[in-house]
């Protein structure tokens, strides 16, 4: 069955409609056994997801309340990430911050995926003047550095987690549009799309049933990759103070809070910072695995 997913390595691959295959358990174990980094990445992402959806399981305390008598304690068994300048447990804040940061990231990627995907799909499918018009808009978006564009949007939208997410999402619309357009251009020339035309299928049915599902694969991989970048961008903006107001423990703002205490309490910046780095690396590793690593594995 797996043979069906195999794309020929020839110069002009013929896209094949997506088929669902049942993974072979022995192969899966061998695959993961050779990739400890990927296993770690999966564990990290699983951990972040648990933190986002059930933070109470990992850190039962209240992230917003601390005991000032215990402020700036270094990491210890009682406070594995130490405590901050008001005696709040940094571990609890990181865990509870996961949902905020993840929520922003998911919104950002969703915005980029939906808007970028639609622009690319339309441009690639309709071609002609609409393609030219949309691609020039995308050119303009690509010409502006993403963080600068996000900052400009934030200034217009105002502060807050969701607004940060939208700003980050809009700033990465362009890359999704480009990839989606390229895939659509390829797929719309496939024999089954021509066949669909030939039997008189309406254009929107063709677009929805035949072009979109087969062009979406690379965009989905890009979305996972973009997920990591979006975590960084969202953290950067919340570091700059554009995110949720205090005491919300967004990851970026946790790092920002700690920087005044760097000389006396390294853990305030280092541990949330390492968490962000680990999450981004994990997501990147997974997106690389999704991008054909399994298929090439024998």
């Amino acid at each position: 069955m797996t043979e069906l997913l195999e794309r020929p390595q020839s110069a002009l691959p013929e896209p094949v409609p997506v088929q669902v295959t049942r993974p072979d358990r022995g192969k899966l174990l061998r695959f993961l056994g050779h990739r400890p980094g990927l296993v770690l990445s999966l564990l990290m992402v699983a951990f972040v997801l648990v933190a986002a959806f059930a933070p109470g399981l990992l850190a039962p305390g209240d992230p917003g309340v601390g005991d000032t008598a215990e402020r700036l304690q270094p990491p210890s068994p009682a406070h594995i990430f130490g405590t901050d300048y008001l005696g709040r447990d940094v571990w609890t804040r990181v865990v509870h911050g996961a949902s905020l940061s993840l929520q922003a990231t998911v919104i950002a990627v969703a915005v980029a995926l939906v808007i970028g995907g639609l622009i690319g799909l339309l441009a690639g499918f309709v071609r002609g003047w609409l393609d030219d018009l949309l691609m020039r808009v995308v050119d303009v978006l690509l010409a502006i550095p993403a963080v600068l564009l996000s900052l400009a949007l934030i200034t217009a939208l105002g502060y807050g987690t969701v607004k940060v997410a939208i700003a980050v999402g809009v700033a990465s619309v362009a890359s999704f549009a480009r990839v989606m357009r390229a895939e659509t251009l390829r797929v719309r020339q496939a024999t089954y799309v021509e066949a669909a035309y030939a039997v008189g299928t309406r254009w929107y049915v063709t677009l929805w049933r035949h072009v979109l599902p087969n062009a979406a694969g690379p965009v989905a991989v890009l979305a996972v990759l973009e997920f990591g970048l979006a975590i960084l961008a969202v953290s950067a903006l919340s570091f700059l103070g554009y995110g949720a107001p205090p005491p919300a423990p967004e990851w970026g703002s946790l790092v920002a809070e700690g920087r005044n205490y760097l000389a006396v309490a390294w853990w305030l910046c280092a541990l949330p910072g390492l968490t962000i780095a680990a999450t981004v690396l994990a997501v990147n590793r997974i997106s690389r695995a999704l991008d054909g690593e399994w298929r090439r594995f024998r």
């Binding site: 917003g64 601390g66 300048y85 502060y159 205090p246 005491p247 809070e257 005044n260």
Partner: peptide, 28 residues
């Protein structure tokens, strides 16, 4: 944010007044 002590102070005040049921929202 014209003094470094403002943010920690206000976060602490926020915690203190929350104990009596006042929700202090900080708008920078």
């Amino acid at each position: 944010n014209n003094a470094g002590s403002n943010k920690p102070t206000l976060e602490l005040l926020q915690q203190q007044v929350r104990r009596v049921g006042i929700d202090l929202q900080l708008r920078e």
